[in-house]
Amino acid sequence: MMTGYRNILWALPLVLVLSWPIWGGAFTRVLAPRGGMDSGATLAAPKAATAGAGFSMEGVLFSQLKNGVRDWQIQAKRLYSGEDQDRMQLVAVEAQVFKNAERRFVITGQEGEYNSKQKVLTMRNEVKVQAEKGMLIQSDSLSYDDQARKITTQDPVQITDKNLDIRGMGMAYDMEKDSYDVRGRVKVDFQ
């Protein structure tokens, strides 16, 4: 028979391993995660990224038709929504605006937001508006209001055409009247 502390220390792990079927189930239930966690779950996304999250799509193209004729079209590298489902956030955006089925403008920008209730597209970050007749409008941000059929900005704006360079602080373009209103201290250079 074994005696001494050294022999007891050797026998204790052996007894624990051999008796595992008796007490192991109760021990694992105590250590099991609570709160409905899935045992196969991976690391979760940060709470701020998922709170109120809506949807996200890559490579999006959507159009609006009026009386069977294309009115405008938006293409984006990425589209996503947050808590407000009526406001869609856009990345790398190109919008085309039509009048009587003819393309009038191509608006590009790095970021955008489309409000589907108000039918307003707001573009930010290196925004350019290229008119079919050759005119180029550049600004840090601008909005296209589909219901009013107007393009507006409150930021510095530069409008260039064949022999013309106009700079100002803010602009409004009315598609129905085909008229521009450049605001602020307007500087006009003829080339």
Rank of each mutant, 00 (worst) to 15 (best):
G82S: 13
V60S: 06
K150N: 09
G109H: 04
Q110A: 14
A92S: 14
D145G: 08
P156Y: 05
E102Y: 09
K128M: 04
V106N: 14
A101G: 01
V93I: 01
T153Q: 05
Q147N: 10
I159P: 00
N125D: 15
V106G: 11
G52Q: 06
V127M: 10
P156K: 04
K77S: 04
S141G: 13
Q75P: 09
P156S: 02
K66I: 10
E113T: 07
I137Y: 11
D71W: 07
Q118Y: 10
L61M: 12
T122D: 05
L90E: 08
G59M: 06
D84V: 15
F55P: 09
D155L: 09
K66T: 11
L142M: 00
Q158M: 11
N100L: 14
T152P: 12
I107C: 00
V157N: 00
L136H: 11
L90M: 01
S141N: 07
D86T: 15
N163A: 10
K119E: 12
Q138M: 15
V69I: 07
K150Q: 12
A76M: 02
S63L: 06
K66S: 03
Q75M: 05
I159F: 03
S56N: 15
Q85S: 12
S139H: 04
Q73E: 11
L61E: 15
L90I: 07
E102M: 03
R103P: 07
I74Y: 00
I74C: 04
E111V: 09
G68D: 02
S116Q: 13
T108E: 06
K66E: 13
A131K: 14
I151E: 08
S56Y: 12
R149L: 13
Y144P: 00
S81F: 02
R103H: 11
